[in-house]
């Protein structure tokens, strides 16, 4: 068994890599390996936007990651700096900025980049998409 972590820097929809990353995560579980966590950085943070709405015949990666995370207890980490500069904010950030709206919620969680360093050190492989 190998332990994996994923480092997703590609935006959902705009990049094919975002969907490939999700299929990779499904395969890690299906093949009996362990996925320690997923870290969203750069445009990858857009995946965490819970306002994501797609047409009925298209893929909603936000929902897919949420389900996979809940099914297999996989933490979904989002870099707070990268997210905030792209308009992805959690409830606390929103309140701090006197905004009633927020679009980042569990199972996605805002963390610092140090979490990525930890994730890399605690997994056999970190795979970037």
């Amino acid at each position: 068994m190998t332990t994996f972590s994923l480092f997703i820097t590609s935006a959902p929809f705009d990049s094919a890599s975002a969907y490939t990353a999700f299929k990779f995560a499904e395969s890690v579980n299906a093949l009996g390996h362990q996925l320690n966590g997923v870290f969203f950085y750069q445009s990858g943070v857009v995946t965490a936007n819970s306002f994501t709405q797609v047409a009925a015949d298209e893929v909603n990666l936000h929902d897919k990651w949420q389900h996979l995370s809940e099914q297999h207890n996989i933490p979904l980490y989002v870099c707070v700096t990268a997210a905030n500069r792209r308009g992805i904010v959690n409830q606390t950030d929103a309140q701090d900025n006197d905004s009633e709206y927020f679009n980042l919620a569990e199972p996605f969680q805002e963390v610092g980049l140090g979490e990525l360093v930890e994730l890399s050190n605690n997994s056999d492989r970190l795979v970037q998409f």
Binding site: Y41, Q42, T81, G112, L113, G114, L116, V117, E118, S120
Partner: peptide, 30 residues
Amino acid sequence: KQLTLINSSSPYQTGNAQESLDFVMVAGTF
């Protein structure tokens, strides 16, 4: 682990350079 970051993007066309430096500083701090 021994980590290597490859910066292959021009400095300002994308955010890659800035977000790479953000990460390398945190990695150094840790």
